[in-house]
């Protein structure tokens, strides 16, 4: 029984992260009719932003280990959201804005190109080797930081290893990490829903997604709405990136590709354009993946990817709007 609960918990957490990325994706598609393949890269940029801010020795203040940890986490969330949003808006401005009105295929190709460009820049600036996310929840082992050491991972075992004394007393177990993840996820999800469903800006964005012309005729300008949507989507993806690396550990330039694809699938299953749909789709996907790995025998469990995609295909054929999607005037 406890095994089931553990795996359910794993599945939910994974699902929430997929959902968070999917929300951004869904929002952008709704507003701009644009499949943003570079969305996974915003996730990656957010993770790196959080990595660097967590590694900065500035936050290791002697106020007490608990406070240090708390502030490190808060700053990491903010930095990851900000970096995700920043890159998102940049990509929209530089890559998508002009091409979007011209040709759908060209826009898609530009999106793929932007995704590759971001990955390659990540390779060069951050180095392609996976980095461990500094365990803000356990005693930290830190060699003297230099700028290049900051940007590039350590190329070998430091000869001496120093343990900073202020964090030595604190050791949050992995379940503590999970608790933190859940709390941040809950806030992020609540924040996203609140923003879209309860604020005026959210209303404007929803109006533009339903019908751009009508929205314009009541005075809503679509371009700022699109930019805000990109920013919000990017921020959510960035936070997901931070949480992902906190929980799973590895940070490397390609890390956004597969979660991006999975979130994409989740968005479509849940209904592209619908925020709740994206979250539901993400949860479904995460649970499906985890539980099928947990309960299927070893040889078969590898097929879970194929099953996920088959699910997608079935949805596309039977109900392309997804579970909670709305008619956008050009579905099947």
């Amino acid at each position: 029984m406890s095994y089931l609960l553990t795996q359910l918990g794993n599945g939910l957490m994974l699902g929430c992260m997929y959902g968070l990325i999917a929300v951004g994706f869904s929002l952008v598609y709704g507003v701009a009719r644009l499949m943003n393949f570079a969305h996974g890269e915003f996730f990656m940029v957010g993770a790196y932003g959080a990595l660097f801010s967590a590694e900065l020795p500035l936050w290791r203040w002697g106020n007490g280990a608990g406070a240090t940890m708390f502030w490190t986490l808060v700053i990491s969330v903010l930095v990851s959201a900000a970096s995700g949003a920043l890159v998102s808006v940049l990509v929209e401005r530089l890559a998508y804005r002009r091409i979007r009105r011209v040709s759908r295929t060209a826009t898609f190709l530009v999106a793929v190109g932007a995704s590759i460009l971001l990955q390659q820049i990540g390779f060069k600036v951050f180095s392609a080797s996976p980095r461990g996310f500094p365990d803000v929840c356990t005693p930290v082992v830190v060699a003297a930081p230099t700028l290049s050491g900051w940007l590039q991972p350590s190329a070998g075992l430091p000869c001496e290893v120093a343990v900073t004394s202020q964090l030595q007393a604190v050791a949050l177990s992995p379940s503590g990490t999970s608790a933190v993840t859940f709390v941040v996820l809950a806030f992020a999800v609540w924040g996203a829903l609140f923003f879209v469903l309860r604020t005026d800006t959210g209303l404007a964005i929803r109006a533009v997604s339903i019908d751009e012309k009508s929205a314009r005729s009541v005075g809503i300008r679509p371009q700022p709405a699109i930019v805000i949507t990109f920013a919000v989507g990017g921020a959510l993806a960035g936070i997901a990136g931070f949480l992902w690396s906190l929980r799973y550990g590895g940070v490397q330039p390609l890390m956004g590709f597969i979660p991006g694809v999975k979130a994409f699938v989740a968005a479509v299953i849940g209904g592209v354009g619908s925020v709740t749909g994206a979250l539901v789709g993400g949860l479904l996907l995460g649970l499906l993946e985890t539980l099928s790995f947990a309960y299927l025998p070893g040889e078969v469990s590898g097929y879970r990817d194929a099953v996920t995609l088959l699910l997608l295909l079935v949805f596309l054929l039977i109900r392309p709007l997804g579970l909670l999607g709305r008619q956008f005037g050009e579905a099947a």
Partner: peptide, 14 residues
């Protein structure tokens, strides 16, 4: 089994 590059090992670990 797992695959090179997998990030989420939670299910496998459990």
């Amino acid at each position: 089994t797992y695959s090179t590059g997998d990030a989420d090992f939670a299910a496998l670990i459990a």
